[in-house]
Amino acid sequence: MILQVKDLITRFYSVDGVVYALNGVNFALNAGETLAVVGESGSGKSVTMMSLLGLIPQPPGKIEGGQAFLFENDKPQDLLKLSERQVRRVRGGQIGFIFQDPISSLNPTMTIGKQIAESMIEHLSLSQSDARKRTVDLLKEVGIADADRRFDSYPHEFSGGMRQRVMIAIAVACQPRIVIADEPTTALDVTVQAQIIELIQRLQKQLGIAVIWITHDLAVVASMADRVLVMYGGTVVEDALVEDLFDNPQHPYTIGLLKAIPGATGLGEERLESIEGSPPDLLRELTSCPFAPRCQFVFDQCWAKLPPLISVTKHHRAACFYDVENEIPRKEVEHG
């Protein structure tokens, strides 16, 4: 285990009121694995990762609870307790990140070579010339043709797919142990998506990086994840190995999602089953199961409190009071 997040609570004090964005997020990341995070927009995927990286704008945001341990030589360090300076060292150092929209995370006025080289100089204490040399190698590695010359290009001179390659180069430049990729292919065409997935997987193997991959596309999850977190209403509602999740989903929301997409349950000819209703209103504090208003299995207990994330089988956890398979309420088991 290299990262463990416990009961993370993040809120935004906006003009419309308090946005209860994260309501106790729990998960762990193992060395070298690919952890996919799925969930509809607003379910808290980005806010979770931004909370870890110290990127929540405060105000209006506030991290109000929880811990996020980064393990180094088994020595845990709580990311949420670090100073601004210490977080900066982790960000781009031990943890690299890639966002959906590379243009907004790249500095438009600085050549991309310089942006990569600077972070190498900062995090790895390289000299100017070493940093340049390594940057050119890295640009080649991520598939930028004519890397020597492209070193001096500005972000706007690259296409969407190429910019994402530059982002990837920046993310892995300082030999991180973790790369967090937030919907890195959502804005790209499928053919370019396939290129980017292949690239990240190759680098991951070469460098032994653990990847957290946020997406809303279950097919992408199926194609590249080892393990999956399903988020809903600012909580993790299911956590399972990828094959388990698709073969044996435990949470009613996950079950619904798999029936709502073509091809997951059969040949893609049967009628899709939609999940009626819409995602929860995060302007209210969660005091019951966030999925209760849309859940076909809802019963008394679901309205009484928030279901904890409990172990269903060895590597499979779900936050639901109901055992859908056996059609009975679940016995409360130990947390964890």
Binding site: S159, G161, M162, D189, V190, T191, V192, Q193, A194, Q195, E198, D217, L218, A219, V220, V221, A222, S223, M224, A225, V242, E243, F246, L258, I261, G263, A264
Partner: peptide, 21 residues
């Protein structure tokens, strides 16, 4: 290039990855 929402199948699948854009 299109992934299918079936992990077992995806694991075995060979992709033809188009180069360029």
């Amino acid at each position: 290039a299109v992934p299918l929402p079936q992990p077992k199948l995806e694991r075995k699948r060979k992709r033809i990855i188009l180069q360029g854009e």
